[in-house]
Structures are given as structure tokens and as C-alpha cells.
Design a binder for these strands. Sequence first.
DNA 1: TTGTACGCGTTATCAT
DNA 2: ATGATAACGCGTACAA
Lengths: 333, 333
Amino acid sequence: MATISDIARQANVSRTLVSRVLNNKPGVSPENRKKILEIIEENSYVPNGLAKSLVLQRTNTIGVVMDDLCNDFFFRLINGLQDAAEAQDYNILFCSGRKDMATRLKYVDYLTGGCVDGIIAYGSRFDDEELFRYVAEKSANSVLIESDLSGCDIDKILLDNFHGAYTATEHLIRQGRKNIIHVTCDMNYDVGLERLNGFVQAMHDYRMPLGPDSILYADHFENTAYQQMQKRLSQSTHPDACFAGADKPAYGVLRAAMEAGLSVPGDLAVIGFDDDVSDSKDILFPPLSTMRQPLYEMGQAGVALLIDKISHPGRDPITQTFEAELVLRETCR
Amino acid sequence: MATISDIARQANVSRTLVSRVLNNKPGVSPENRKKILEIIEENSYVPNGLAKSLVLQRTNTIGVVMDDLCNDFFFRLINGLQDAAEAQDYNILFCSGRKDMATRLKYVDYLTGGCVDGIIAYGSRFDDEELFRYVAEKSANSVLIESDLSGCDIDKILLDNFHGAYTATEHLIRQGRKNIIHVTCDMNYDVGLERLNGFVQAMHDYRMPLGPDSILYADHFENTAYQQMQKRLSQSTHPDACFAGADKPAYGVLRAAMEAGLSVPGDLAVIGFDDDVSDSKDILFPPLSTMRQPLYEMGQAGVALLIDKISHPGRDPITQTFEAELVLRETCR
DNA sequence: TTGTACGCGTTATCAT
DNA sequence: ATGATAACGCGTACAA
């Protein structure tokens, strides 16, 4: 690996001149500039970013920690993060902290070790809390997305899951539905509880019946919700509307309903959550009404917040909350 | 940000001692070690990895470049990469080089700038070739997965797509199928062409009829194959077997066939490629027979190759080829 | 326009 | 056991 000194030696100039050429700065004679550029090309020299960052105290790089990368659901989020970062000439790095907490914390240590200017952590799993607290403690420049960690001076991008769930439920109620149920998403995530709470609150506010059969506990797989709904439909009284805590369970509900011969949205209206475009279900099922989570915008906002924090060290933490938007499609008119 | 000098000053010792404590090395009195550890804790000090890597000329980090991260299909690959890397105490970083070539090359420049010990590049899109050549040229330590770039001294992990396609087609032929068709995956990728070639070669070797209707051009979406197959089934003669270039088009074929009232595998046998477990189609469709691509193992092997190259600089490039495995499920017995 | 010298934060060598 | 010093590769005042 050639260094700047090697280049300087070959060009018979000082490292200063080479540095100036590298950074397109003035103060180099045209002849020298030309000669230096040639030698750089010859050696296919790449400046050492470590040394540069060390002296500049700045890497122009953002690190992202999330528990799982390869999930279609994150498509919009990752695109939002990347677009915003690259628009500001930041590199963006992704770490996947699956597995045990020790590995996750090791990645945070790695990232806080100087290779990035700031960290974005995504997720809302209950057992991720330790990770997020660690991030908040170790790194001055960090923002949490989707995780409402309390008691930490840290920037946050949140979605109002409670309000979104409330809105969806309210819509079903106002539509005149009488027997509304909720199928939860994975309750290991904060969002699961928040959405459940929103549902319950809306039902309560409108004096709607809420019994043990009103809530079906599922997760973010289609199958679980499908099976739960099958069981539910074997009972004598059928629900006429369902708010699901995520789109995947909503599809499970749809399948069970259609197999049971129910018409959608006639016999059963369905609203999901997230607007998870990962699956091309449009042929199998009627297009799903859902609470659209603006993940792209949330990713963008996260990066904006982080870059703002980087350029204004010590400023007070900011929390930015996004609202989910009711998108009405075929399963609920 | 506290530095090692800050810690040393507060502890009234030299940086040397602090460094020894940080790296669990002997030569520090118990009292000093205890005091230093306390002060490190107090300041929640994290050593600067940049400076450390600079002097050690080693980062213990691997960088991965791929065009798209958030795709369920990469689940096994990413897990293989991570498991292998972390087992050897390497950090692993992911960069997604979507968008324009300039951005992609920028990430390669970034990675070759010293922040990683080696680079793994994944993909086989035709227009990625420039990227891969750039990687091969700029970084001594790099391995390409799934891309058979010619004329480059670089380690490669390949899948024998031709042979896999040949095997699948051969199986259908030996099963006594008479009218076999191939539905391609995205032909913008090398793998698309290789699998098509394998199909054609097998058909040719066994003297099977091969006409313009024998090949349906699709991509890696379910819909395209679905529509192509619908069209194909509107013709008078129906195929009795189909080898699809990927699992998603295979599902499209299945759907069209089932909607047309064909029995599977009775009227139509189907074999896919990849064993893409991303979708939970098992309820909708009979479990798909497929050529399983050992992505997890390929990821592991890629990391192993890279680490080997790092520890044996200058060794000759190695190419490792994996075979796809025929997994027989319901759609073809 | 050009070059010298110092500092970024760390580890390693060699003293003491 | 402890500490001073050089080195990693780079940017940048400052001097020439």
C-alpha cells in the first residue's frame, strides 16, 4: 500500500503538495499537480481514511445498527436512510446485531470507536433496550428510530402507534361495524403493545363491546394470525371487522376469512398496519387497507437529526413523532 | 471524548500502563490496574479504533458490498457471512451500493481507504461488472461471490448454475415428462443466462423438443412469470413440466397452473431454483421442489477465503464452486 | 509556490 | 513495574 510519502518521494515534492492535490486545494504549480496526479494514478494510490479521519476528527460516515438487515420490511427505511445520508455526502454503514447481546454491544463499541460520526439504532424489541441504552450512553451523536427509550438524553424518531391504532379502529366503528376484533402483531415489540392499547382505547371511548374474544394474539407471520382467525371463525358469532397490528397478520386473517366463505369487506372489513409492500399479494387478495407507516420519511428524518446533532454538539435532544396514515383500499371502504 | 492520555493523567500513570490494561496485558501492578479500570469506567472511555488500526495496520473488520440489502433472499447469505466472520472475531460491515455507479465506487474507495482488512462483493448483475473490476483492482484482499469475473486475479465463490439447471431439467426428463418448458429469472443477471444454458443443454443432450414456446422470459417477480404462464396456457398444447430459473417465477407458474385447473404435479411438474424461503407460501401452494443454492455455506466460504487471503498476502487466487442440490418436494416427485 | 514540523490517539520498543 | 519515545498516514499552521 502506497502512502502519501511514497507519492511525494516519487514526485520529488513534499507531502504537503500531494495532500493539496488530493484535496483539490490551490497552491500547487500546474506542472507539479500534473506530475503528482500521474504518480497517484500509476500507484493506484488511495489515501488512508483512518489517518485522515484521525487528524480531521471527522469521518463523514454514519453507522446504522439494527437487529436484522435482510427483511423486505426495511426496504423503505434503508432507502430513506441512504438517500438522506448520501445527499449530504455521508457514507452509511450497516451492522446487523442479531444473536446475543454481547455481539451487539461489540458493534456499538466498534462504531463508537471513532469510525463513524454518529449512530442510528433501529428497533423496538423489549430485549433491545439494553442495546439502546448502551448506544445512548456511549455515543453523544446518536438517534433511536422506533424506540421510545425513557430517561435518556437522545434524539428519537417515533411513530405514534397508539394514535394510528386508534384511527384504524375508529374508522371501523364509524363505518358501523358492530363486532370488531384486533389481531396483534408480535408482542415482543413495543409497537405491539402500543397498537393494542390504541385499539382498546378507541373501543372503550366509543362504548364498543370488548370481550376475551375481541383480541387474538399473533405475531408478524401470516400463519399464526391465519390459525388464530380460523379458530375464531369456528365460534358461533363472527366478527364483522378486524384491525390487525401489522400487514402480515392481516393477510392471515384475510385468508382465513376467504376460506371460510366470508366476503371482504362485506362480511368482514380488514385494516392492517405498516403498509408492508414486501409481498405481491395483490392477485390473491383484495388490496389491503392499512395504516401506512412512513418509514422512508422516518429514515430521512433520522439522518437529518443525526447530522444536525453532529454539527451542533451539545444541543438538547429532539423527539420527532410521525403519524401513520389511513390508506383505504379494497378490504375496507 | 476522553483519550488514553486523559485516562493516564487522571490515574497519574503513563499511557503505556493504560494501554496494557486496555489490552489485558501483564506488567501492571494490581493497584494501578484497579485504579485505571475505575477511571476508564467513570469516563465511559472507549479507545479510538482509528488510531489503533493505524498503528496495528489491521482493523479486524470485513466490508461487504452488495447492491441491495433488504431482500429476504439474502437472509442465508448474510447469516453465513456474519457467523463466519464473528467466529473469527472479525466485525462485518454492510454497504448497499444501489443507485448509480459513482456511489458504488465511492463505497469501494471508502472501504479500501483502510477501514477494513478486506472486501466481499456480492452479485452477478451485468452492469455490476465495472464495480467488481474496481474492487479487484483497488483492493488486494477481496473476494467475489456469485460473479465469475474473468481476467482478474481475485478469489471467487461461485455456484454452478449451469449444472444445477441441467440437473433439474434432467430430472424432469427422466421422470418421463415430454413437454418441458423453462421460465427464466431476471436475464440482467449472469445466473439467468447460465441457468437457461443448462436447461437448453440438457434438453439437447436428451433430444427433447425445444421450440420457441419452450422458453418463457420472466424475472424475479411472481407476477411476470404468472402472466407469461397464463399466456402460455392459453395455447392449445400444454407443457407437462416446468423448470423455473428462480423460486419466485416458479410460484407464478404454479399460480397460473392452479388457476387453469391443472393438477400439480400430475398435469404439471415444477422445479424452481434457489430455495428462497422468504415467503410462507406453504399454505397456498404445494411445497416447491427446487435447486437449493447453499447461500449460507457460500457466505461462510467467502469469509474463510478472505481471512485466508489476509493472513497469506500474495497467495494465488482461489475459485471455489458450489453445487446446487435438488430438493424434491410436492411439486415434483 | 514550496517545505518543515507538529498533532490526531494508539501500540510497541526500549529504557529505567 | 513503569515510562519516554517512535511510529502508523495524514492535514495544516507556519515559515521560507
